[in-house]
Design a protein around this nucleic acid. Sequence first.
DNA 1: ATTTATGCAAATCATTTGCACATAG
DNA 2: CTATGTGCAAATGATTTGCATAAAT
Lengths: 131, 131
Amino acid sequence: MQRNTVQRQIIIDTLKNSNYHPNIEEIYTEIHKMHPSISKATIYRNLRQLTGSGAIRRVSLPDGLERYDGIATPHHHFRCKSCGSVLDVDLEYSEAINDIVRQKHGFQVDEHDIVFMGLCNKCIKQQHSRS
Amino acid sequence: MQRNTVQRQIIIDTLKNSNYHPNIEEIYTEIHKMHPSISKATIYRNLRQLTGSGAIRRVSLPDGLERYDGIATPHHHFRCKSCGSVLDVDLEYSEAINDIVRQKHGFQVDEHDIVFMGLCNKCIKQQHSRS
DNA sequence: ATTTATGCAAATCATTTGCACATAG
DNA sequence: CTATGTGCAAATGATTTGCATAAAT
C-alpha cells in the first residue's frame, strides 16, 4: 500500500503551487530551497509513482525534459518555440474527437493530448520591438 | 552546406519504408542488418539534422524513446497503452483549431499535435480472448 | 512488526562530442 | 581543395537502482 510521506506531500504541494509545468530539475531546485535534505532520487521515484496513480500528469513535449503538471484533469498545452515555456490552453476537452477516431479505426480511445506550438505573447512583443 | 551522404540516404529510406514510427534503437538495428558499418552516432546526428530541416518528423510521446516518422506532413498519432505501438490516425488536420487558440490567448499558433491513447485493435482482441 | 520509502552513491542508459580520417561538392 | 560528415571511443547528462536506515501503518 502506498504511504503518505512528508516528502511526497511536499512534492505534490510544490507542483500544485506551480503553474508553469516545471521539469524535474526545476522541481528539485524549488524544493531544495526549503527542504535541502530531500534527494533527487526521491523526487524521481515520487513523480513516477504519482504519475502512475493519476495524482499528477506528465507533459511530454519535443525536446527538453519531461514536465509535470499538478492539475490532474485533462487539458491541453501550448509550447512557445522561442522561449520554451509551456502554458495551459483554455480549450474545451472534446470527448467527441475520441469517438471519431474510435469509429474510424476501431481503437478503444480513452483520452488525447493536444500540444499547440508557436510564439507566446511575450515573445511576439519582443520580436516586434527588435525590428 | 548540407551534403548528400550514403549514410543519410539510408537513414531516410529506412524511415520512409517503416510505418510504425521506430525509435533510434530500432532504426539502428534495422540499418545495422544491411549496413553494419554505420554508427549510432551518425544516426543520432542525422536524425537531429533531418528533424531540424523538416525532412522527417519527431514524435514525442510519454514514456519511451523519441520516435521518428518518415512522413513530413503533419498528422496525428495513436498510442496503444498496452503494447506501446504508435499508429497514424486518419483525421483531417484542422487549421481552425489553431485559430481558436490564437483568438483566445493571443499566441501565434503555427501547428499542433494530437496524441490519442487507448487500446489498439490487436490488444482489444487479445483482451477478449483472455476472458 | 512489517512493509514501504528515503538518501546516498554507484550503475545504467541515452545522447553528445572530440578527434583523426573520409568523402561530397 | 575545403567544408561537412563519419566512426570510434570517451564524456556527459538523465534516470534508475542497491543497500542500509528511517518512517508509516
